[in-house]
C-alpha cells in the first residue's frame, strides 16, 4: 500500500505554548488509525495541524500528503486534496442551509456542475442512513442542532465530500448509545480500501465495526507507543498510567 499521510518530526505551538514535540505518524492508503491519549496530550492539535488550522504554528517538521509537502498550504487547499476533519464542536452558520452548503462544497471539490435533483436524492439517502430527519437539509448549517445532530451532520459532510483521509475528532463524544451506533455505521459506509481514517476517541464502541490497523498513544505532543488494535483493550482495562509511566 502506498503512503497517504506522513507527519515528520512536527513541532507546533498554540498561543506560544508548545503542544506537539517532534511528532511522527505515517498512514497508508486504506488504513484506519486510532489515536488515544490523556486529555491535553495534543490529539486535537494534531488533527488541526494536519488540516492546516492557522491558529497552530508549525515551527519544525513537515506534513506530506500523497508525497507532496503540504505544510505551507491553507486549509481549503488541503481539503481539495482530500483531507477532511470532523470537528469536535462544529461551527453554526446562520443563513446557509445544510443542503446549499454541501452543494457548494461538493461543486467546489469536484469542479463539476451538480444536478440539483440527483444531489438532493443522494443527500436524502445518506441522511436516511444516518437517521437524520430530512428537514435538517433545509435548516441552517448546525444552527439549533443538538450535539448528536451536529456530529451526524459532520459524518454526512464526510460522506458527501468523499475525502481520501477523514480525521474524526471525538465524533462519538456526547452521543448516546444509539447515536454512536448510527455514526459508526456511517463511518463504516465511508470506509473502503482506497481511503483512510484517523480517529481520535475515548470510546471503543465507535470502533467496533471497523478494522483497525494501528493504535497510537499520544502523550506530551509525541507518539509514545504504537501497536495493533489490542492496545485499545489494554487502555480500556488499565488506562494510560502504565504506558505513560514507562515514558516518564
Amino acid at each position: 500500500m502506498s503512503e497517504l499521510l506522513r507527519v515528520e518530526n512536527v513541532h507546533a505551538l498554540a498561543d506560544d505554548k508548545q503542544i506537539l514535540n517532534g511528532l511522527n505518524l505515517e498512514i497508508k492508503k486504506g488504513e484506519t488509525h486510532v489515536i488515544m491519549g490523556p486529555n491535553g496530550a495534543g490529539k486535537s492539535t494534531l488533527d488541526s495541524v494536519i488540516m492546516g488550522n492557522p491558529q497552530y504554528k508549525v515551527t519544525e517538521g513537515k506534513v506530506f500528503f500523497e508525497g507532496e509537502d503540504i505544510t505551507a498550504l491553507k486549509a481549503d487547499a488541503r481539503a481539495r486534496k482530500g483531507i477532511f476533519l470532523s470537528f469536535q464542536t462544529p461551527e453554526e452558520v446562520p443563513g446557509v442551509t445544510l443542503e446549499d452548503f454541501l452543494r457548494v462544497c461538493r461543486r467546489n471539490m469536484t469542479g463539476q456542475p451538480l444536478k440539483v435533483f440527483a444531489f438532493r436524492k443522494e443527500l436524502k439517502a445518506l441522511m436516511d442512513d444516518l437517521d437524520m430527519d430530512p428537514s435538517y437539509a433545509s435548516r441552517y448549517l448546525n444552527v439549533g442542532f443538538s450535539g448528536g445532530e451536529k456530529k451526524k451532520s459532520e459524518i454526512l459532510q464526510m460522506l458527501v465530500l468523499q475525502p481520501k483521509l477523514a480525521m474524526l475528532d471525538e465524533t462519538d463524544s456526547g452521543l448516546d448509545v444509539d447515536a454512536v451506533r448510527v455514526v459508526s455505521k456511517g463511518i463504516k459506509k465511508f470506509k473502503n480500501e482506497d481511503n483512510s481514517l484517523l480517529i481520535i476517541t475515548h470510546n471503543a464502541r465507535i470502533l467496533e465495526n471497523l478494522d483497525i490497523d494501528k493504535v497510537h498513544i499520544l502523550y506530551n505532543g509525541r507518539i509514545i507507543k504504537t501497536a495493533g488494535p489490542e492496545l485499545i483493550e489494554e487502555v480500556n482495562t488499565n488506562g494510560f498510567a502504565n504506558i505513560i509511566g514507562k515514558e516518564d
Partner: peptide, 15 residues
C-alpha cells in the same frame, strides 16, 4: 471569527 473561517475553509472553500 477565525474558528468559523477555519471550519468553512476545511470544507474546501477559499478565504
Amino acid at each position: 471569527n477565525e474558528n468559523r473561517m477555519f471550519y468553512l475553509m476545511s470544507r474546501g472553500l477559499s478565504e
